[in-house]
Amino acid sequence: MEIRRTRYDAPDAVKLNDLVQQEYVRRYGDGDVSPMDAAHFEPPRGLYLLVYDPDGTPVASGGWRAQDASPEGFADGDAEIKRMFVVPQARGRGLARALLAELEATAAAAGRTRMVLETGLRQPEAIALYGSCGYLSVPKFGFYRHDELSLCMGKGLTADLRI
Rank of each mutant, 00 (worst) to 15 (best):
A107T: 04
P139R: 00
T57E: 13
H146R: 15
Q67D: 09
R122N: 09
S34R: 07
F143T: 14
K155R: 14
D32Y: 08
V87E: 05
G77Y: 06
W64N: 00
F85Y: 15
D12E: 13
D32A: 13
I127K: 07
C133T: 11
G31P: 08
V25N: 09
D12M: 04
Y144W: 09
A159S: 14
L149N: 12
L149E: 15
Y135I: 06
S61Q: 14
G142M: 05
S34E: 14
Q21W: 04
T106M: 07
L16V: 04
A69T: 13
P139F: 08
E80P: 00
R97G: 03
G56L: 03
A90P: 00
L19V: 01
L161Q: 12
D32I: 13
C152R: 05
R26W: 01
D76A: 12
L50V: 07
R7W: 06
A159Y: 08
E42Q: 13
A110C: 03
V20I: 15
P71N: 12
D30S: 15
D68I: 11
V14W: 01
Q67S: 11
V59H: 03
L95P: 05
L161Y: 02
V20T: 11
F74Y: 15
E23S: 13
L161C: 06
R26V: 09
E125L: 03
A126P: 04
G92H: 08
R27C: 07
G92N: 10
R93P: 05
F74A: 03
R93T: 11
D76Y: 03
H146C: 12
A105C: 02
Q21Y: 03
G154D: 07
G142R: 09
L49E: 09
L161E: 13
F41E: 05
G92K: 01
D18A: 14
Q22C: 08
L99R: 06
G131S: 14
D147H: 12
A38C: 05
Q67N: 07
Y52G: 01
A108T: 03
S34G: 02
D53I: 09
Q89H: 13
Y130G: 03
G120S: 08
Y8R: 11
Y24M: 14
R114E: 11
G63D: 02
L99C: 02
F74C: 10
E42M: 10
F141Q: 09
G73K: 05
Q22F: 02
R114V: 12
I127N: 04
P43H: 07
A10W: 08
Q67H: 12
G31W: 04
L19R: 13
T158D: 11
G156C: 04
T119M: 07
D68P: 00
M115K: 07
M153V: 04
V59S: 03
L157E: 02
V87Y: 04
M84H: 00
D12W: 10
A159W: 13
S137W: 07
E72L: 11
S61P: 01
Y24R: 11
K15E: 15
N17H: 13
V51H: 04
F74R: 05
